[in-house]
Structures are given as structure tokens and as C-alpha cells.
Simulated assay, not measured.
Amino acid sequence: MAAQKKNRVCLIAVDGSKHSNYALDWFAKHVHKENDRAILITCVDHSSAFAYGHASMVPGNPDAITKAYAKEEKKSSDLLHKLEAEALKHGVAVETLRVGGDAGEAIVKAAAEYEADLIVTGCRGLGQIRRTMMGSVSDYIIHHSHTPVLVCRHD
């Protein structure tokens, strides 16, 4: 009896930017195969809820933290629903996954957990100095993932 071939697991990192939207589009048109398990992954950034000067930092206002968290969760949920519909227009059925923490680390960890065969990400095209100073999610993924990475550069 022949061994059953495992379906590819492809993580597509999205954040709502034109760069990640381009990566999703490129994946759908050039990489996706019928039996792929495609997973849209986004990272929820709660750090803005604790930014100095943000309303949630005001003493005596604990509800503001809860509201800030809920706002970020809704934003990511809306994004995933929108991009799920966009993928379906290309004939790609996707699962969605929200993770928290540092985006690069969370994506690499999810790729390992899901035994991904491919990570697809966009690239903002930061210069060497800006990338060194600010960091880059795609750069982090490239250098820390044991999963092959496809970086789609959009001009």
C-alpha cells in the first residue's frame, strides 16, 4: 500500500498592509495547490494599550485596558474575516489564526507547532539601517525559522 501524501501546510502572515495583501494574492495565484492547508496568521499587538500617554495608563481607569484589548482583538478579527473573503475570491479556502506577542517570534513558533511546509510573508523593503534599528518581521522569520520562507516584495 502506498503511503498517503501529507497535504502541505502554508502559513500566510498578514497584517493588513498592502505588502501582506500582495503576499496573499501572490500565494493564491502562484503557489497554492488544491489540497493545501492554507492558514492566515496575524499577530495581535497589545503593546499600544500600554504605550506611555495612552488612556489605559491613566490611574483609576482599569476599564480602559480592557477596552484597548478588545479594540485590538476586534481589529484583528475584522482583518482576518476580510482577508478570508479575499482568499475565497481566488478559490483558496483558508483557516485563520491569531497569535500574540512579537510577530516574528509568534509566526516562527506557529510554523513549528503546525508543522508548516511554507511561510509566506510580505516585505516592506526597509533599508539596512532602518531594518537594523527597527527590526523586520520578514527578516526575523528568514533567520529563525526552520520552515522555508517565501518573501513577496511589493514595490
Score class of each variant (00 low, 15 high):
2 A>F: 11
2 A>C: 14
3 A>N: 12
3 A>V: 04
3 A>R: 13
4 Q>M: 11
6 K>E: 08
7 N>P: 04
8 R>W: 11
8 R>G: 02
10 C>Q: 03
11 L>N: 07
11 L>V: 12
11 L>Q: 12
12 I>D: 01
14 V>A: 04
15 D>R: 14
15 D>T: 09
15 D>A: 01
17 S>V: 03
19 H>C: 01
19 H>D: 00
20 S>T: 11
20 S>L: 09
21 N>G: 07
21 N>L: 10
22 Y>L: 05
23 A>L: 04
25 D>W: 10
27 F>Y: 10
28 A>V: 00
29 K>D: 06
29 K>Q: 14
29 K>H: 15
33 K>F: 14
33 K>L: 04
34 E>M: 08
37 R>M: 06
37 R>D: 01
38 A>C: 11
40 L>C: 07
40 L>V: 10
41 I>H: 02
42 T>G: 08
42 T>W: 05
45 D>W: 04
45 D>R: 06
46 H>K: 09
46 H>N: 05
49 A>N: 13
49 A>H: 09
49 A>I: 01
50 F>N: 09
50 F>M: 04
50 F>G: 11
51 A>V: 01
52 Y>W: 12
55 A>T: 10
56 S>Y: 12
57 M>D: 13
57 M>S: 15
58 V>M: 09
58 V>W: 15
60 G>L: 08
60 G>A: 09
62 P>N: 13
64 A>N: 09
64 A>R: 13
65 I>S: 06
65 I>V: 12
65 I>R: 12
66 T>I: 15
66 T>H: 15
67 K>L: 14
68 A>H: 14
70 A>G: 05
70 A>T: 02
72 E>G: 05
72 E>I: 08
74 K>I: 01
